[in-house]
Amino acid sequence: MLLIRRSARAANAVRNMSPGEELFVASVVFCMLLAAFGDAGNPTVLDALGFEFLIADLGGEMSLLAVGHWHLIEFLLGGAILAGVITALQILAAAFLRSLSPAASRGIDKVPIQP
């Protein structure tokens, strides 16, 4: 008897999302998992294993972000930024790959090679 079940689209939310919405939620979930990692990550374990350099690098980054103590608003902002970066990379990569493929032999953008 949930209120949201009155909407057929919402009742099947996992199938009715746009790719953009899906990417945003996936990014938020990724940030949540990163926070769990930051919360669970114990620098003393790395030290005991002889990976002290990682404490300075990875541990330092983690403590700089304080990712283990992120709240929902930070997850949403982080997710939005991550989703934006992924989308931008996707557009750039697509444009780059398109420029690599040759134009159609009779295409209007085909530059004629003069002998």
């Binding site: 209120l3 949201i4 009155r6 909407s7 689209r9 939310a13 009715n16 999302m17």
Partner: peptide, 17 residues
């Protein structure tokens, strides 16, 4: 609420997360 979740079903997924 129904209009919101109907327009943006991702609200439900975000709620689940």
């Amino acid at each position: 609420v129904i209009k919101l979740v109907d327009r943006y079903p991702s609200v439900i997924l975000l709620g689940g997360a």
